[in-house]
Amino acid sequence: MKFVIQVNEGPYQHQTADSAYQFTRAALAGGHEVLRIFFYHDGVNNGTRLTSPPQDDRNVVNRWSSLAAEHDLDLVICVAAAQRRGILDESEMNRLDKDAHNLAPGFRISGLGQLIEGVVMADRLVVFGD
């Protein structure tokens, strides 16, 4: 089955990002395809590489980056949600005249059209977060 995953919450406060990650891993292990993971609303906070949890805690952001590298996943951060919350890649930094960028490896910033295009191609949209 072809899945698109939508993540609506940031890491740590809610289990949402963990559940989405675990579902994605299980789907891939089960031979399914994950066409795209779309980070929406506060979910865009899954994509900042400045995240620095304590040593004995999981690193939610690095975990996404590793999974993306391993399975060639398409991790898309919603641009409108990202701008409001200060998640920028280098080109957004330049365009918005900011002094830093923080997008984690394996993520890219794009528009809501990526979610719509994804669900048109997918068999199922699975949404994590309320």
Partner: peptide, 29 residues
Amino acid sequence: MIKKCLYVNRRAPYGTSYALEAIDAVLIG
């Protein structure tokens, strides 16, 4: 390909960002 998309709006307009976000998502759809 055209799919039948249902946008379900469940929350009051200003307490969360969802209502405003839904408007963008509908227009993109």
